[in-house]
Each structure stands twice: as structure tokens, then as C-alpha cells.
Amino acid sequence: MANADGQKTPVGFWASASDRHSIAEDIQGIAAGSMLAALGVTMLASAELLIGGTAGLGFLLRYSTGLSFGLVFFSLNLPFYWLAYRRLGLAFTVKTFSAVAFTSVLTEVLPAFITFETLHPVVAALFGGLLIGTGMLALFRHRASLGGFGILALYLQERAGWRAGFVQLALDLLVLALSFFVATPFVIVCSIVAAATLNLTLAINHRTDRYIVR
């Protein structure tokens, strides 16, 4: 944003502008988004549900092999950083890497501090999907994502005008189709509810023409 003299308003660690976040705001936004997403993942895992995207692939591998979700989720996202760097820039890539790493760590740590004695799968689907979607919304607004399909969805929204939520929903349904090999029909239905809640949260609330801060 330019001031009255035509010069851009400086943005530093604390100072921000109307069209750009400060570094401190980015750190807070990425941390908050990652924390919300990790809590949502914890709820889904407690109810043994799945979700779409690389997180869904992480759940599939966790349930079928017993591997750590955090490690699998972090590893699955590695190939997408090149696309992020080439298409969306270094800043986006660094922020996304930080968000994925923090979320991966939190998903491993939270179960030691948070347990659910009673958690109905439908409740887990609705609240877990909403938490992950809200977390991703916070990350999107700070020019970051949870990697994987989120990078592709955000790229297509910016380049082709396709709504990120709907793009990710289509990709997520492909992942959920694989869940038929490891889950019961009821779990699959609840997982679809979680994916729909997540992506509708993004589709309704994330539009680049309404929120343009960088």
C-alpha cells in the first residue's frame, strides 16, 4: 500500500499495513491456524475417522500400518513444496512448511494432554472438520496452507479463479474413496461429513476479492 507520497508503507516485525501483515501477525496467524487444525485432527483420530487430502492419506496409513500420523503427514507434503515455491513464491513455501511442521508435531503431542471419554463420530466429524477448516482459513489469510492438496487448491484459485474449497472437496473425495478398504460404511459417512464441513467452511469464507491482505 502506498502513502500520500506514493511510497509503500513499511512493514516490519510489528508494523503492518492495510494490505500486508507484519511478521508478528504472520507468526500468530500461522501458529493459531496450526493449533486449530491439530485439535481438529485429534478429534477425528479419537473417533477413528478420516478426512481428505494428505491428512486423509496420513490417516489411511496410520490405521492400516500403525505409523505415526505426524511423521506420515509431514513426509507426504514434501513433494508439494517445489510446486509451492515455483508457483506461489518463497514466502508462501516457508510459511507452509512451518505450518505443516508445527501441525505435525502438535498432532503427536496433543493426545498426551487431551483425551475424549465420550466422542460420537458425528460430533467429531462436525467439530473436527470445522476446526481444521477454520485453521486452514487462518493459514490461507496469512499466505500459507497445510500443504498437499491445499497448495494445489490455493494455486488454482489464484490462477484460474476456481474456489479453493470446491477444488479441495473434489480431491478429498478421491482420497475418501480409498477409505472403503479400511473403514466401515458408518465411519466413511461420518468422514464425508467431516470433509464436507471442512471444505464448505473454506468455500464460504475464503475469497481473495474480499480479503486481500498479504
Rank of each mutant, 00 (worst) to 15 (best):
A196T: 13
L198A: 08
P121K: 05
A55D: 07
L71P: 15
G128L: 10
A84I: 05
W162S: 09
F69G: 03
Y85G: 14
T96D: 01
L202P: 02
S46L: 11
L146N: 01
Y81D: 10
L90H: 14
N205K: 11
G129N: 01
F140H: 00
H21G: 00
R163E: 09
H21M: 04
V182G: 09
G161P: 07
I192Q: 07
L139I: 11
E48G: 13
G66T: 07
A183P: 02
R20L: 12
S34E: 00
L78Q: 13
P185H: 07
F92E: 00
F13P: 13
G40S: 00
G52F: 00
V182K: 15
G56V: 01
L88Y: 01
A101G: 12
F13E: 10
F69R: 06
T93Q: 04
L198Y: 06
G70S: 08
G133K: 08
T107V: 11
L83R: 14
T197S: 04
D19P: 07
A177N: 10
A195E: 06
A195Q: 12
L110H: 08
V175Q: 09
K8S: 10
A138M: 12
L67K: 13
N3D: 05
M1P: 15
W14F: 08
F166Q: 13
E108F: 09
A194S: 00
G89H: 03
L173C: 11
P185Y: 08
G150I: 06
L176W: 04
C190E: 12
L131G: 05
I132S: 01
S18W: 08
A99T: 06
C190V: 08
I188A: 09
I188R: 11
G29H: 01
A195C: 05
I212H: 14
G135Q: 00
A144N: 09
R210I: 06
